[in-house]
């Protein structure tokens, strides 16, 4: 007799637990307001990434095409996997002094692990992260980027 009661008790408890789960899913089915999907390519316009989001390393330039990179190479030293290569050249300034300036700041996006050490250790805050995250390209060579824009110069007052 006891086992019979147990048998039916098991059934009722089991069905009860199943109904509990179904209540949750059923409720979500009838509440379309809870949908969390973002229609990604359609919401490009109003998609705002967090300001600290590590999209890719960029070198901010101001309006007169000046950057802050002195070509010191600290970012290159700090990069754990050789993503950054700083090629500098020597120019002769107006007052006749030789000065080392940056020729090319090469950044290999394909190798970057976004550890942020370059941005953090840069003594002149020349590097930053952009919020750009659409990196897909058809040619791998396009992932090798030169961060300083052509014809750009060192900002005044940054040494």
């Amino acid at each position: 007799m006891n086992s019979i009661i147990q048998y039916f008790k098991e059934i009722i408890q089991g069905v009860g637990s199943l109904l509990k789960g179904m209540r949750v899913t059923n409720r979500y089915f009838f509440s379309p307001g809870k949908i969390v999907t973002q229609k990604y390519p359609n919401n490009r316009k109003d998609l705002v990434m967090f300001e600290r989001f590590k999209g890719e390393v960029v070198m901010p330039h101001n309006e007169s095409n000046e950057h802050k990179c002195t070509g010191c190479g600290i970012c290159e030293i700090n990069c754990p996997n050789g993503t950054i290569e700083v090629i500098s050249k020597t120019i002769i300034t107006e007052d006749g002094k030789k000065k080392r300036v940056i020729d090319k700041h090469i950044y290999r996006l394909g190798m970057c692990t976004f550890c942020a050490l370059c941005v953090k250790t840069c003594p002149s805050n020349a590097l930053a992260f952009s919020q750009e995250f659409e990196h897909a390209v058809f040619n791998r060579a396009l992932l090798i980027k030169t961060l300083n824009k052509p014809g750009s110069q060192l900002m005044k007052g940054v040494e």
Partner: peptide
Amino acid sequence: WEYDAILSGNVIFR
């Protein structure tokens, strides 16, 4: 509690 309702308490899962 939904975690419990859907999985932890579910008789099949138990």
